[in-house]
Design a protein around this nucleic acid. Structure first.
Lengths: 120, 120
DNA sequence: ATACTTGCAAATCGTTTGCAATACC
DNA sequence: GGTATTGCAAACGATTTGCAAGTAT
């Protein structure tokens, strides 16, 4: 994985501000706003590569849009339904008791807990 | 909501076999296989209407594809990553301890627990 | 008769892909 | 130079929409 101009710029945008959640579109917007010339295709490439390498985690919350989380530790999420925003919940803050055993030849790859929030 | 031919046929396909998870495409296929002439547009209409009415529940597990669950009780899911299949987990089988409080003016609408399974 | 439904085909949205031009080592 | 990477534009798959024709009450 070569440290190209666009990869470096994207990495800076992603990891400098601390933990965050981005969509490809949003990151693309930020890049352009920051004066970084990148194509959307490259954004997707990079996000997936970083995910493969373990620097990002993909979160499925909403159909039709993929979120990438710069926090790859064990943790969960609040999802604000009205705004589409995500908030991290430290893994320790959600007590999961014994989980049902996985069927036959399968193993638990990950447990996602999503707490969906609406206006009260 | 009128009991039209296609709505009745779809309701039968959905609710007669016991609890299940379907995608619009899959239901469309079944309908055609069962000799029921329905357009995909109507499938989507009907699935959404049934969801609004509370007879179905929408599950987000996978980007780019929406699952509808005929089980609307409190429960969670196993997701078989290799096949894309869903398996219900009774709500009681997952012990959730105290959850972090929802921020300011927000309330918990729902808690989704998804246990992702891969081949072991 | 009137309002609700259907179905087609076109449109949309996020994402992916093919491929030639380009940047990295 | 050789290989990885970029960017464009076209291709995609799932879902939605506009609208004319059909159907329930």
């Amino acid at each position: 994985m070569r440290p190209t101009r666009q990869r470096l710029a994207l990495a800076r945008l992603l990891f400098e501000p601390g933990h965050r959640h981005v969509t490809a579109e949003a990151l693309h917007g930020e890049a352009l706003a920051a004066g970084v010339k990148v194509s959307l295709a490259t954004i997707y490439n990079t996000l997936h590569q970083l995910t493969t390498v373990g620097l990002l985690r993909e979160i499925v919350i909403d159909t039709g849009k993929t979120y990438f989380d710069t926090n790859v530790d064990d943790h969960h999420h609040f999802f604000l339904e009205r705004t589409g925003r995500l908030i991290d919940i430290p893994g320790a803050d959600v007590a999961l008791g014994a989980l049902p055993a996985a069927p036959d030849g399968l193993k638990i790859a990950r447990v996602d807990v999503i707490i969906r929030l609406s206006d009260s």
